[in-house]
């Protein structure tokens, strides 16, 4: 479905995740983060960039793998994106909902 985020119309899934990463930009990310009650700072952007790169390389993401990435540890990841860090960070990064759960 289509949704207006910030001042841009993008395609999102039922859960509000971007369908096409090409529609993502920093304004979209900032607007989604606002919906989640998060104000993006440098540390957030580093994580977002890491998640997007992993996604582009087809690497499945887990909280553990993010924690071992060297970009942020698990505690820090929770501090940046409280409660569901991987879900929230994925949505803000414009990548699909994590399917760590199989």
């Amino acid at each position: 479905m289509e949704k207006t985020i910030g001042n841009k119309t993008v395609n999102v899934s039922e859960d509000g995740y971007l369908i096409d990463l090409n529609e993502w930009d920093k304004d979209v990310a900032t607007a989604i983060a606002q919906e989640e009650g998060i104000t993006l700072a440098d540390d957030h952007w580093k994580v977002i960039e890491y998640l997007q790169n992993q996604h582009k390389n087809d690497v499945p993401l887990t909280i553990r793998s993010v924690g071992k990435s060297g970009v942020v540890d698990i505690k820090g990841f929770y501090a940046l994106f409280p409660e569901g860090p991987l879900k929230k960070a994925s949505r803000i990064s414009g990548i699909p909902k994590p399917v760590s759960c199989i």
Partner: peptide
């Protein structure tokens, strides 16, 4: 503790 696990 965390996913994935054997026999979810």
């Amino acid at each position: 503790v965390e996913m994935p696990i054997k026999c979810p």
